[in-house]
Amino acid sequence: MSLDLEQLVQEHLPRLYRAALLLCGDPWEADDLAQEVFLVAARDPDRFQGRSAPYTWLYGILLNLSRRRHRKTRLHRRKLQVLQEERSQQPPQSVSAPLEQQEFQGTLWALVDRLPEAQRQAVVLRFGQQLKYEEIAQIMGCPLGTVKSRLYHALRTLRGWMEAEEQEEGTPSRPATGERSRAV
């Protein structure tokens, strides 16, 4: 099945970029990730059978790439931390994150980033993309009940973390709107 790459990019880039940004938390990385999705699609267009909507297929590619990238980044960070500790024999100093990442850190999405991979992806598709449970199940390749269960556990964990943070900060009132303080 032939795909018009330019049309595909124009139609689906905003949604895919949004999902990529929420998945990796860095606009530059999100840019790369979104581009890689289209690159994979353009290199092997025969994989799209036309049984589902193109965006379902593209989201599937995005989730796979994001999973791989997340694993690599985590490994890279661990290596850097070990190197830093070995060199200085001191606890690693907190390096000030770039402005874009600081923006991300100030949101609830920074907590979502700490969730297990499958739960994180479900939250991004549900609240970042406003997809229905059925669509999420199709994209993630799992039953509907699994999607609900992942979302349930993810949201419960998020709420627990928020409450713990509030207790640490000593603010008794839970934010009714769920607004997380921007100065983290």
Partner: peptide, 10 residues
């Protein structure tokens, strides 16, 4: 409880 906040921040 959490959905609207997540969507708005996104």
């Amino acid at each position: 409880e959490l959905g609207p906040v997540l969507t708005r921040q996104a």
